[in-house]
Each structure stands twice: as C-alpha cells, then as structure tokens.
C-alpha cells in the first residue's frame, strides 16, 4: 500500500492534468464556434476593446520603455567585450520586435487582464448572474467570452506595436544620453537592420498571446468554484496558466517562424 502510494499520486495527477487539458480544449472549440455564429454583441466588444486594449497601454508602455533602456545597456556592455558596441541599435530593435515586445506585453496583459476577466466572470457565477443571463435568453459564451476573446486577440498586436516602438525609444534614449550614440546614426542603424518579418512575427505572436490571455481568463472564471475562495483560485489559475501558455506558445512560434 505504502509502496504504491506515490504511483497512485502520479496517476491521479496525470489524470487530473489530462482532464483539465480536455476541458480547456472543449471550451476552446465552443468559444470558436460561438465566434462564428450570431448573435454578436458589438457594444460588449467595444467595452472590452477599451478595457483590455486602451487601459493596458500604460502598463505595456512603461514595461517596454524600461526594458528597451536596460537592453541597450546590456548589449553595450556585452558587445564592448569584442568591440561590437555599434550593434546596440539593431539588436535592441530586433530583440524588442521579435521577443521582448510580444512576450513582456503578453505577460503584463496576462497579469492585468486574465486576472480581471477571471475575477469578474467568477464573481458573476458565484452571484448567479451567469444563470440570470441564461434565463434572460442570453448565452454567456456569446455575451461574455466572445467579446473578450476578440478584443484581446485584436488589441494585443496593437499593444505590441506600441510596446515595440516605446521599447526602441527607450533604447534610443539610453543609447544617445548614456552611451554616446549619435541620434541620427542610432535611428539609421535601427531602420536599416529591422526587417518587415521581425515586426510582423511579433504582431502575430501578440494576437496568439491575446487569445490565450482571454481564453484562460474566461475558462477559469466560468469553471470557478463557490465563494471567495473559488474566485481567488480562478484568478490565480488564470494568470499562472496564461503566463505559462504564453511562454510555451512563444517558443513554438519562434521555432515555426525562424528555424524553418
């Protein structure tokens, strides 16, 4: 009995994990099928564009600004070991556009938005507002999940584009004020080395990360347990799962885009 206990625990955990993956997959297919079928709620969609997109801009912008500055300092320090200080503008731009812009933007939005979505929907569930929606002939998947999924998928690329620009500007500020770069030279170097796909791949990543953030927020909110503990657990799970999935998806997308 004692010898088999660890095996039983591993078995239970594996079954639990597989069941959770199955539930998320079902939720994903349901959500996508509702995206494609009317009715749609444009007013809810507009509200979510503001909530998810516009109100996340300060967080994403500040994160990008400081990251761009720090990146410039690090690349300068590393590059100076083999006389490659001149690569700072191009590496800052490529690093921000391909990786740091979408990943940090996605993680910051996961922290701000996935938690808010999960807490809001879980509270609605606990207080019977989801049941009330159904009795008022309104499908909660269509009214709550679809607007959030669409808004997050469409606004995150815009946030990533803004974050990329602000991050590169952060590198520019540090490069020209602290590292002795010439303003015109820094901009020329950035523009010359940055390619279309560097930026576009980051925007595609942003869209995928936005979908993940809203999906995890809605899934954990809709499947939350009862009471304050249930709401708290849903919120935590939404942020943790969205963050892990963003990092995993980032690796897979980078493999797909840059090693093929």
């Amino acid at each position: 009995m004692i010898l088999t206990a660890p095996l039983a625990a591993i078995g239970r955990s594996t079954l639990g994990l597989l069941a959770a993956i199955g539930r998320v997959a079902l939720f994903f297919f349901q959500a996508v099928s509702h995206i494609l079928r009317p009715p749609w709620y444009p007013r809810e969609f507009a509200v979510q564009l503001i909530q998810i997109g516009w109100l996340s801009l300060p967080v994403v912008g500040l994160t990008a600004l400081f990251t761009g500055g720090a990146l410039a300092l690090q690349i300068y320090a590393g590059g100076s070991r083999f006389n490659a200080e001149a690569v700072v503008p191009s590496i800052v731009a490529i690093g921000m556009a391909r990786e740091l812009g979408p990943v940090l933007g996605g993680l910051m939005v996961a922290g701000r938005v996935a938690s808010a979505i999960a807490a809001e929907i879980a509270t609605m569930k606990v207080t019977e507002q989801i049941d009330a929606l159904v009795t008022l002939s309104t499908n909660p998947m269509k009214y709550l999940t679809v607007p959030r999924l669409l808004a997050a998928t469409l606004t995150l690329p815009v946030l990533v584009a803004a974050g990329d620009s602000i991050g590169i500007f952060g590198g520019f500020l540090v490069g020209t004020t602290r590292l002795g770069f010439n303003e015109v030279g820094y901009i020329t170097n950035t523009v010359d080395f940055l390619e279309f796909w560097d930026v576009a791949s980051g925007l595609v990543k942003g869209a995928v990360f936005g979908f993940i953030v809203a999906l995890m927020g809605c899934f954990h909110g809709m499947s939350s347990g009862r009471g304050a503990r249930g709401v708290g657990k849903a919120t935590t799970n939404a942020v943790v799962s969205a963050s892990i999935l963003i990092l995993a998806a980032n690796y897979l997308l980078t493999e797909l885009f840059f090693t093929a």
Binding site: Q129, D131, S137
Partner: peptide, 20 residues
C-alpha cells in the same frame, strides 16, 4: 427552442443577480 422557451419565463434570484 431555447430563445422562445426562455422568453416565457421571468425569474427573481435569491441574491437578486443584478448585473453590477
């Protein structure tokens, strides 16, 4: 059919269940 069926009902929930 759900929509016409639910249109026949009104419900007062225990906690009100108002959309805040």
């Amino acid at each position: 059919e759900r929509d016409p069926f639910l249109a026949k009902f009104g419900m007062l929930f225990q906690g009100g269940a108002l959309f805040d």
